[in-house]
Nucleic acid binder design. Structure first.
Lengths: 207, 207
DNA sequence: GTGTACATGTAAAGTGTTACATGATTTC
DNA sequence: GAAATCATGTAACACTTTACATGTACAC
């Protein structure tokens, strides 16, 4: 369904009128932040373009304080129709990118001490997101779609946190004591820590 | 840690030598596909650039069949050092984008029949991914990082599928019978089905 | 014979992020 | 006095996807 920033803005504006700044804040934190993202650099141009196309209207609120006046956007009938259309197409498959998991895949190449830091930081991050979600849960109006999405987030985050905690010792212990004792199963890497170790020349390989 | 296609290729090449085509196949399906993505249009240029920079080497295998010869890439010492460096930086936060969840958020604007199709298709998609992961699990060599990531995927996918099945009736029933009977809690939309309904003029709004 | 897998690569188009520019007000 | 919040917007850059171009071999 091409869920671009455009559709995202329409969706939010279908719930209530908002400024670009507010839209950003809604997707930066809050209930939707875990499966949606957009920055100012994409939101403002999207709103401007949609204004030209008649999908939204603006009302400028100048509070005479010298700061940029708030530009409150409202969705139009045309905008609602466009949203409807987008919503009734098939969703594209989910996209999930995790540098953390990528790093875990190659954990024997990470400095054991640093690995522990990364691992714990990741758990904390997930916990923070879960707490944010739960705080938000009370604030938002009761509504089946919102509740579904929030519950989904809660369940998934809870599961991830439990998994990470359960595996923590096992994951970190395996490499904490011996930074390379016995076998190193993958490849034949040159040590595992200190970024600048084997960077001697240009073409020093065996095999 | 800027996990771009570059780092991804280095990571895979640190496990074994491969062609661009093979790298694509590994991230398209298989054990890593759920948290990694890259297409030919980014893989081939990345490999070419890394070759110039001395991070990888190539061996061209022409089987005299007229078809493009395989270009098998091998990681160099410099490449390993670069991978090590990347691996030892802090991971960027996960990015998860889900059009499906976005649609669920606005489910009252989706044609009930279509909603059911979307919902079930999504479940099937998750199940297919889980099966792919489990098939792959046997094929790959035993290795802590790989196992961790696979188990993580299994647990998360299993949880998602269970959640979706548990909520299915509740989600679809609420809107299947009455396409708008009683209150419609969000906004004040114009009906909910058939893409071309309220698209009369250009500027027909109240409020 | 039709489709899929193998296999490489380029160019254009699209989409989004980051950094910048500006500036008042409020909180620590 | 420093930092964060409010508030808008642009421009350069990065990255990726999509479509195209090319062609064999094998399975159904």
């Amino acid at each position: 369904m091409t869920m671009n920033v455009r559709t995202l803005c329409l969706g939010i504006l279908s719930l209530r009128e908002a400024t670009g700044y507010e839209i950003r804040k809604m997707v930066e934190k809050g209930a939707f932040s875990h499966f949606i993202d957009a920055s100012y650099g994409s939101i403002y141009p999207a709103l401007a373009r949609m204004l030209k196309e008649g999908l939204v209207r603006v009302r400028t609120e100048d509070d005479g304080s010298g700061r940029p006046p708030r530009k409150v956007y409202t969705i139009t009938g045309k905008g609602r129709a466009e949203l409807q259309r987008a919503l009734n197409t098939d969703p594209a498959p989910d996209k999930f990118k995790s540098e953390f998991l990528f790093q875990m895949l190659f954990l024997e190449r990470i400095d054991p001490a640093h690995l522990a830091v990364i691992y714990d930081a990741y758990i904390e991050e997930q916990e923070a997101e879960l707490h944010a979600l739960e705080e938000d849960a009370g604030a938002l109006p009761e509504h089946p779609g919102t509740r579904f999405v929030q519950d989904y987030g809660r369940v998934m985050l809870g599961t991830a946190i439990a998994f990470l905690k359960e595996r923590r010792v096992e994951m970190l212990e395996a490499f904490a004591e011996h930074g390379g004792t016995g076998e190193r199963p993958i490849g034949d890497g040159e040590g595992c820590c200190s970024g600048a170790m084997g960077v001697s020349g240009e073409e020093e390989d065996r095999a």
